[in-house]
């Protein structure tokens, strides 16, 4: 890595901003363009950039595959869980209006949580696919 000092230093500066932007896109999706899917991809891109310049092993120390594999499922379960919760509270599947006393608040909570689920699954899947592809080369 010593031969690409500019690349390594620049990537190091960029990564936190990419991750922060991902969180902004995640939680600002109700107001601006974006949402869980884009946020998940951008978050994964930040970690992948780190892996490309610092090596996969160091990226795996930050985001271990053992953590990412369950996260893949947790996102989907979070999404489905919101659907089940709205059923238990008296509505249809994914009918967020029943999640709070005010239907509009319920919609807000529902959208926030399912977008989080989307973001978690997408980010975890993208990183896992990248790890899998990088795994046995050389």
């Amino acid at each position: 890595m010593d031969k690409n000092v500019v690349l390594v230093v620049f990537a190091k500066i960029l990564v936190p901003f990419i991750l922060l932007f991902a969180l902004y896109v995640q939680f600002h999706g109700d107001f601006g363009p974006g949402g869980g899917f884009q946020a998940g991809v951008i978050f994964a891109t930040g970690i992948i950039l780190y892996a490309l310049v610092q090596g996969v092993d160091r990226a795996m120390a930050v985001m271990p595959p053992a953590v990412l594999k369950p996260m893949m499922a947790i996102g989907v379960l979070l999404y489905g869980g919101v659907g089940i919760a709205s059923m238990l509270l008296g509505g249809h599947f994914l009918d967020y209006g029943f999640l709070a006393h005010d239907p509009i608040h319920g919609q807000h909570y529902g959208i926030l949580i399912i977008e989080l689920g989307v973001g978690i699954t997408v980010a975890a899947v993208m990183m896992v696919i990248f790890y899998a592809f990088m795994g046995e080369q050389n």
């Binding site: 996102g75 989907v76 999404y79 659907g83 699954t121 997408v122 899998a132």
Partner: peptide, 21 residues
């Protein structure tokens, strides 16, 4: 959208099953 997330999840599971990490 739930279906789409399930598709992404399935893609991840598929890659894991074929290649593994």
């Amino acid at each position: 959208t739930l279906g789409e997330v399930a598709v992404v999840f399935t893609a991840g599971v598929g890659v894991l099953a074929l290649l593994g990490v």
